[in-house]
Design a protein around this nucleic acid. Sequence first.
DNA 1: GACCCGAGGTGTACGACGTACACCTTCACT
DNA 2: AGTGAAGGTGTACGTCGTACACCTCGGGTC
Lengths: 254, 254
Amino acid sequence: MYTCQGPHHIGLEVQPEDALGSPSNEDSPVRRETLSRDRVLSAAIECADSNGIESLSMRSLAQELGVVPMALYKHVTNKDDLLDGMIEAVVGEIVSDPTTGEWKHDVRQRILAARAALRRHAWSRAVLESRSAMTPAMLDYLDSLTGLFLAGGLSVDLTHHVMHALGNRMWGFSQDLFAATPRSDTQSFNTQRAALPRQHPHLAEIARAALRDEPGSGAGPGCDEQSEFEFALDLVLDGVGILHATGWSSASAT
Amino acid sequence: MYTCQGPHHIGLEVQPEDALGSPSNEDSPVRRETLSRDRVLSAAIECADSNGIESLSMRSLAQELGVVPMALYKHVTNKDDLLDGMIEAVVGEIVSDPTTGEWKHDVRQRILAARAALRRHAWSRAVLESRSAMTPAMLDYLDSLTGLFLAGGLSVDLTHHVMHALGNRMWGFSQDLFAATPRSDTQSFNTQRAALPRQHPHLAEIARAALRDEPGSGAGPGCDEQSEFEFALDLVLDGVGILHATGWSSASAT
DNA sequence: GACCCGAGGTGTACGACGTACACCTTCACT
DNA sequence: AGTGAAGGTGTACGTCGTACACCTCGGGTC
């Protein structure tokens, strides 16, 4: 955790012999080791993982590291750079299974791997979507994914359009706009639920069916997020497979 | 525009007879009319439209309305409520074409209508995605969209999954992760562009093809955002059509 | 006319936040 | 011993959302 900042360091009061006289003795790290970009980034990631991205500030991060806020700016140019570094690290966590040559299978694996990595860090979706420019790791991932389509024999034309069509689904998230009313107090939740059928009959019908199929299965109102994601992904990939098989090209489109 | 705050109102200095003595004479509104939730919301929308959502603060909005910041809180409980009200208004702008009974066509129309409404307000995508709970207008839209599938004869099971599969595409945006490096300075843009082919051969290949097809057609690196969106939408809808025609159900899925 | 009451606008203030800028340590290398 | 840079500190500024106490009206009741 490292929330210690134990000896109440004021920068001068630290005893030199105890702290610096035994650099090889790390059983009681009264003197923290020097900062680095990596240490800042992993502390930031850890903090965002456990406390949520909205409570990650330069000040709280500095405190977590037992350091004054401005110290971070020696390793990170500003907060945007910090966020870029964080997603860079998370995207770098995506593991690439060996390819089989069957493009649909390979793409599926790769995207599910991305999903697994990004889901380990709940904040990554929001941060990724808020960035305007791409980081190197993002470009690497995108390039490898594109390569899988091309290796499968899809035309660059079709591949291009498919990458657009995947949209943010290529990162493994799907937005889940049905899992709304997530954490609101039970009061308003119940009144809303009660008022739903008359106001929104179609939504009510779906909710009823979903609840019947998987009663109280935890996540959301009876929806298995993972299988919903895979359903949507396969829908797109199968559609692309058909276009590929029938020789689609953008010139011949409607 | 209403950036005036002309007579430098201090609340007391306003002349009663000039301002209040002629309520029917609105040619020189030296006394601003009273605030209301609607006036606050439409000023906020106007401000976000022209200056971007990131520069919309309670303070700037109050200034735009010629009012002290805290005055807004008489009409809006807090900034989140303001944002909710703004998207509520924008989503309410979605026009519903008359339905034809052909579900694929109707859904397509409805989603493109949503796209048109949300694109009039560039900030709406980010705000919509940042909200956790749904507003009434959002529920209305979702319900009507769901109703189109059900009216077309799709099972509630399939409809449910399709709504999930549409994800945020049902609101008419697609994230466009290929239009990256949007406004960065030409310096780094060029170096990045130069370094791209060796680092990311597949992306380079696609970029080359796209540039050849539509050389310098403005928007992004040769991508027509609108047709990309429609491509992806049709891909999903056609896929759903196939599932529907072949009697898909979640029980029979792999 | 006197009263009051509540809706709506004001003023001040607090505790976040990101970060500019000048400073001080420390340490490797000359 | 001397120097210069790398890394940590302290202070300060401007911005944000908003709590809280106030003031000012216009309209309803007695």
